[in-house]
Nucleic acid binder design. Structure first.
Lengths: 189, 189
DNA sequence: GTCTATAGGAAGATAGAC
DNA sequence: GTCTATCTTCCTATAGAC
């Protein structure tokens, strides 16, 4: 087992992820990442030989895995569609810290990497999210075409509410969005 | 009158703005800004003694003025509410190049400036936008509380559709959003 | 007003001791 | 695995000629 580890992998990813979410890829300096992680630069390079780019990629992959486990899988799993959606809303609230944390998919999609290695990962994550939401809505009896439209709108509203919340300096828009999301998706608004 | 000017102010702001929209504040290096503007670094400093921060601020102010002139004023002006909204949609399509250009309000809101000088400007721009949209909807006979909710949703969807479009690498979400915006706002969807 | 040249510092990344 | 010290490159910004 790995001994002499100052920070566990999960905790490390979480701390690095916070930096990337706060200031984006270009804004996340090694100094900032080192401070946030509690490790020195050289130690970060020991864990991520590929440097900042690898850190961002692994953070993105970790977030994708989290999304899959805590959001997408529960959406596909059993139970009433309404309950599954309510569960997603609770998880989203926690994941984005009630609207205080921006979304990695937004903050990393402008990374000026030579033909971005993140591009594919970001697109796949969006696609998977849309697909899972579409599935739960068809389970609820919604026509597939309509379901997909509502799923896309939901994901866009999530992104927009986070951008808007950050822009106006309050989490109200995000919280308000989360509240209306189940109704918007199921068409019971 | 100003002679010997290599690039006119309006054109200069446009070119600098494109860089900030593409790669954000931290990603916009002076080298990149110089290449895009057609001026050398030193020339940029002659026009913007405050450096990159001043460039971003003036670009943001210029965009705010454009928004006010081409979007907000027409919204307030005469004519049927539906026509005013349709007009806004056309202007938005042009301003964001059909979804290919990101929004400054999103790309600059994470600028790691000492307690951001952009923060206030961004919030004010969002507020003015919401207010103008709310006004045109009340003109259309919509209850003010409902109008404000729809205005906020519209602005959030705009931001979200741009983020999503960039993420999935196609402008379809943005164009689709623009198409449905008038109906969503007026409640005739 | 624009340029070439360069200063000064912060950035990403590495070497080698412990 | 983590650290201090260092290297190189890029960045922001300035000096001074034209």
């Amino acid at each position: 087992m790995g001994r002499k580890v100052a920070v566990e992998d999960a905790e490390l990813m979480d701390r690095l992820g916070r930096v990337f979410r706060d200031v984006g890829y270009e804004g996340a300096s090694l100094t900032l990442l080192a401070e946030a992680s509690g490790l020195k630069k050289a130690s970060l390079y020991h864990r991520f030989p590929g440097g900042k780019e690898q850190m961002a990629r692994e953070v993105l992959e970790t977030a994708g895995a989290w999304l899959d486990k805590h959001i997408l899988s529960p959406l596909k799993g059993g139970g009433a569609p309404k309950d599954r959606i309510d569960d997603m809303v609770r998880q989203l609230d926690a994941f984005y810290s009630g609207g205080k944390q921006a979304c990695l998919l937004n903050m990393l999609s402008s990374a000026r990497i030579h033909d971005g290695p993140f591009t594919d990962l970001i697109r796949q994550t969006f696609d998977a999210w849309i697909e899972a939401l579409t599935a739960v809505l068809t389970d609820a009896g919604v026509n597939r075409t309509i379901a997909r439209k509502r799923a896309e709108r939901g994901v866009m509203m999530l992104q927009g509410s986070l951008v808007f919340s950050r822009g106006v300096g309050t989490t109200r828009p995000f919280r308000s969005f989360l509240k209306s999301l189940p109704g918007d998706l199921l068409g019971t608004a």
